[in-house]
């Protein structure tokens, strides 16, 4: 067998052996990615946990990326669905959610301090707080990127704490399908007017 032919044969053999390994790594990365929050939500969680100085227990952390949600959308296109629900499903491009609970018997951390810590973490990542609400034991904060956002590329990150449990949600979406659905509603103007007057 000539030398060049032998080396080509060896190359193919290596490729054949490496392919399943690479696929396994890729699959492992994708699976691991499903249990890992997006970077901004991770930064928010880390800062909140660090600054609170108390023990938190992770209940769940899930992340659905473009690929996963694309597959979900493709699957949903085959089933009969309420137009509103379909528009909502079509709008979400990526979504991550993390749920954390205070260890039992731990007193809830100071909400104002939590909000300040969340603000500093998000500002450092180029996000601004659009809404902050403290009421009783509850704390809600909504963050949006400082950069210009368009209807086709909207991002937001939400933190909710009820004194025991903290939920972090980060999502990116395209509002066009939802907007189209809203515009198709015949009594939209009346509904908006009613809402504003309230």
């Amino acid at each position: 067998m000539p030398a060049t032919r032998r080396s080509a044969w060896r190359l193919w053999l290596w490729a054949l052996l490496a392919a399943p390994l690479l696929l396994l790594i890729l699959f492992g990365t994708l699976v691991a990615d499903c249990f890992c929050l997006p970077s901004e939500a991770r930064a928010l969680r880390n800062e909140l946990i660090r600054s609170s100085g108390v023990e938190w227990q992770q209940q769940i952390a899930l992340n659905a990326d473009t690929l996963t949600l694309g597959a979900v959308r493709a699957g949903l296109s085959l089933v009969r669905l309420d137009p509103g629900a379909r528009a909502a499903a079509q709008s979400v491009r990526t979504a991550g959610v993390g749920v954390y609970q205070l260890a039992s018997g731990t007193p809830p951390p100071d909400r104002a301090a939590m909000l300040a810590a969340a603000d500093s973490a998000m500002i450092a990542h180029g996000w601004d707080r659009a809404v902050g609400v403290m009421d009783g034991h509850d704390l809600v904060a909504v963050y949006v990127p400082k950069e210009n956002i368009s209807a086709r590329r909207v991002k937001c990150c939400v933190m909710v704490f009820d004194g025991k449990e903290m939920v972090l949600v980060s999502a990116r979406g395209n509002l066009d399908p939802l907007l189209q659905y809203a515009l198709d509603q015949p009594d939209l103007c009346a509904q908006i007017q009613h809402l504003v007057q309230r």
């Binding site: 104002a112 809404v131 902050g132 403290m134 009421d135 949006v144 950069e147 956002i149 368009s150």
Partner: peptide, 23 residues
Amino acid sequence: PGDDSEFVEVQIKSNLLSLAAQL
């Protein structure tokens, strides 16, 4: 904020307002 009392802060900046205008 007072203990157990309501505190709300809303800051809608030009990027969100521009999005609302687009909509």
